[in-house]
């Protein structure tokens, strides 16, 4: 279980997140909502360790990760699909997926089938350079790379941003099948309400760097949406 407690984080002098606490239970899909610039991606980076916590703590399965570098967090079972995919442009698609194995708990040289069965197109593009792929293909590659290490928690930062509708459906199917397996929890940042409502178990809404609302699917009413999410 991931637990973030009273996290404060930011860039340089400016504080973006204040007193943020949230939990992701095993197998649960938790969605992080909020308008632009409220700190959703900053929170993801804080969980992954790309931003240091000024105050508060991040723990995973009871182990305190607050001082752990991103590499250590990846090895403890957290997979990350960042905003903008962050594919290695000069490496081949195959090499990109292989790098996903670096964090695997059992040292292996073979990519697990689970990582690729949802994205058969990745296998066909093994020899191409990551940077030559389209945005949608890169997003699928980023998913496959994150799934290669069989993470128990997956951080997804806007996985559907700028992606054609058919691949958005693919991604939705992937998230649903992960949920059906029940082995991997997901912390999801996504702008599309329709998308998060179709997959999410629990919701947090950020406003001005703090959690303004939290609750299950049934309590995510139109009033809440109007108050915190409508522009």
């Amino acid at each position: 279980m991931l637990a973030v407690q009273q996290l404060e984080a930011g860039y340089g002098e400016s504080v973006i997140l204040r007193d943020v606490s949230l939990q992701v239970r095993p197998g649960q899909i938790v969605c992080l909502l909020g308008r632009n610039g409220v700190g959703k991606t900053t929170l993801m980076k804080g969980v992954m360790g790309l931003l240091k916590a000024r105050k508060g703590a991040v723990s995973y399965n009871g182990a305190d990760l607050t001082k752990t570098a991103p590499g250590g967090r990846a090895k403890s079972g957290i997979g990350y699909v960042p905003q903008g995919r962050e594919i290695f442009p000069q490496l081949t698609v195959f090499e990109n997926v292989l790098l996903g194995l670096e964090a695997a708990k059992v040292k292996t040289r073979t990519i697990p089938d689970e990582a690729l069965e949802k994205f058969p197109v990745i296998r066909e593009m093994y020899g191409r350079r990551g940077g030559d792929l389209s945005g949608g293909q890169q997003q699928q590659l980023a998913f496959a790379r994150a799934l290669a290490s069989k993470p128990e928690l997956l951080l997804l930062d806007e996985p559907c941003e700028g992606i054609q509708p058919s691949i958005v459906d693919d991604i939705r199917d992937v998230i649903r099948s992960i949920k059906a397996d029940g082995k991997t929890a997901i912390l999801l940042v996504e702008q599309s309400l329709e998308f998060v409502k179709s997959v999410g178990d629990y919701f947090y809404i950020l406003e001005k760097g703090s959690i303004a609302w939290e609750g299950g699917l049934e309590s995510l009413s139109d009033d809440v949406i109007r108050k915190y999410l409508t522009v």
Binding site: G71, G72, E86
Partner: peptide, 8 residues
Amino acid sequence: EMAACLGI
């Protein structure tokens, strides 16, 4: 950054 996030 991304390499670090993959456990390298």
